[in-house]
Design a protein around this nucleic acid. Structure first.
Lengths: 157, 157
DNA sequence: CCCATATGATTGACGTGTCAACTACAGAGG
DNA sequence: CCTCTGTAGTTGACACGTCAATCATATGGG
């Protein structure tokens, strides 16, 4: 009833927004760069390998894999192509649906993930967990929840 | 004295981390998509246009521009090339240093920014400011500060 | 059985980001 | 003046992401 929906951020709110978004971007970028230099894996590689390791039989249908990591199918398809060239995963035909495919972890992919995992988790601890107080960590969770709630809504008038 | 520096996140901390990073990524992606569909500008375009508008004479040396928005020069150079093709900015020679160049806002670039600005700020308000309580907004600021402090440090042992 | 449509997956075009060369000029020292 | 080194900026190769189009097969209705 107040037209708040169309309101603009104040200078202060805008400053916080920029700090916040730039910081999370820098954080992502630093994690990505460490993962790359320590393990020759991109964050995308890591996400795919993680999902496959946790999957029944270390294999998944592309659609199912895409759903689990929240990607669009075409993005995954490109990623799978790149990973297959490097021998991290293997594409196989699907028995129950000849339109479909299956993505399977190779021994090399499995090993690459094992080597990457520990350093990556340490980096997450160092760069995200350590700098925050327990209260801030809890606040981060609530902030994420609040933001996510608004994002899911299609976009009201 | 406790080996904490090498510690791993707990399952709970890892969950929070994933929620947090995925949410900020989704937020960035939504903002980007709205900017694109409402104004045909990418976040990169917007950042460059904003910096130029705020610059003395609406022009900047590429290095100075890169520094202000925190980009590497090569990234900016590619961006400038794309924006020049679309008529948003213009490259000019630099009088005081013949190695150098200057990037100047064109009337079209200026107008594109004007058209993009209001809807973009509204989106920031809607998707970031509105969903958070004042306490959460303050907490977001502190969290960003804490994370940034750790990131700046080169990387201790 | 055959067709219309839906679904699984891939592809190509293109914008974007990083990294490592590379070009061209500036500026200091001989 | 000349060389040596540093700096401004660009470029090319390649990884990545999105979008729209495409291909092949599945599937339900006549």
């Amino acid at each position: 009833m107040t037209g708040q929906r169309k309101a603009l951020p104040t200078a202060e709110e805008l400053r916080i927004w920029r700090d916040f978004i730039e910081t999370t971007e820098a954080l992502r970028s630093e994690l990505s760069s460490r993962l790359q230099s320590e393990s020759s894996l991109s964050p995308g590689d890591y996400a795919v390998l993680l999902a496959l390791r946790e999957a029944e039989g270390r294999r998944l249908r592309p659609s199912e894999l895409a759903a689990r990591i929240g990607w669009q199918r075409s993005r995954l398809s490109h990623q799978i192509g790149r990973m297959e060239r490097r021998g991290l995963i293997r594409r196989e035909e699907c028995i129950t649906d000849s339109r479909g495919a299956e993505v399977a972890l190779t021994p090399q992919g499995s090993e690459a993930f094992r080597n990457a995992s520990l350093p990556h988790l340490r980096a997450v601890h160092e760069l995200f967990v350590t700098p925050l107080t327990p209260e801030q960590l809890a606040a981060a969770e609530e902030i994420a929840r609040a933001l996510r709630a608004r994002l899911k809504v299609p976009r009201d008038t």
